[in-house]
Design a protein around this nucleic acid. Structure first.
Lengths: 161, 161
DNA sequence: AATGAAATGAGAGCGCG
DNA sequence: CGCGCTCTCATTTCATT
């Protein structure tokens, strides 16, 4: 696919649009248009462009995990033994491929990875640790925190005005 | 509006639908219908019901923070001094109210809170720590990890079959 | 009671000025 | 970028199991 040569810089209209759709992407274009003082077509074009260029990564429904029996959220910090590029990439791919792993970040500091995991029961988490951590001989150590309260959960970003 | 007395239990159709919309909620109903062997009308009704009952919490666009100038993602673990209910609730409310705090979990274990923070620059983070942590005399200690790679980011839940 | 099929209406998608 | 058209898709209605 051809990548445009434009720097895909966002103007204040784009930011205003993002601010709306990151909270509710079912908002009709003409309503967004009123809000940002633009026509519905313009809004549509901008959104499409931002989807194509990857600024908007996806459009998803947010599900309440507790209501589908997936009530346990866990935080895992883990250290690896060897940090060669190949092993790190392998770890990234492995973690990313596991559905229970909702989020995975590669970080600097005392640990190497931070994961957010959601499972139905502790037994499932136990099984997961066995497969993912004990079964991986590049994992030095990991530490788990159990979420008692998901105080704030979202991917919304605070946008510059 | 009359609330049904049903416990709003999800059947396998609902779960199959959720599995699709939590990845892409722009999928046309008739396409979902083909996938789960249901008509578009049935799909539409089920989704509406799940939205009304809160199983689907929201419909959002996922934005790449790096592309909107919020290029730094950070993890913060923090311990509080006093864990009285009032102080914990106050902390929850404070963290949740900050736009830069994307996620906040109250957890068991060696720390009390885990935060995911997204900011434009380290200077902004510095300011945030000053306001939020140093300015809060119930914060005992906090530890920060800087994300070098957002390997996987999502809120999708692994659904039971 | 919930479903599928067909009719209606709103909104997205494009080409035009 | 805004205006208008066309057409897809969401929504409602209704007969059916």
């Amino acid at each position: 696919m051809a990548r445009t040569s434009t720097s895909s810089a966002l103007d204040s209209f784009d930011l205003a649009i993002l601010d709306i759709v990151q909270r509710n992407n079912a908002t009709p274009y003409h309503v967004i248009g009123e809000s940002v003082s633009l026509s519905a077509s313009a809004v549509q074009r901008r959104i499409r462009r931002m989807e194509e260029t990857g600024i908007i990564q996806s459009n998803v429904a947010v599900i309440d995990p507790a209501r589908v029996g997936q009530s346990i959220t866990l935080f895992v910090e883990l250290e690896v033994i060897s940090e060669t590029a190949e092993l790190i990439d392998a770890a990234k791919r492995e973690f990313a491929s596991v559905p229970e792993v909702q989020q995975c970040y590669y970080v600097t500091g005392e640990v190497d990875f931070v994961l957010v995991v959601v499972v139905p029961t502790m037994k499932d988490y136990e099984d997961l640790t066995r497969r993912l951590f004990f079964g991986n001989n590049n994992v030095k150590r990991f530490r788990t925190f159990v979420a008692m309260d998901r105080v704030k959960v979202g991917l919304a970003v605070s946008l510059p005005k």
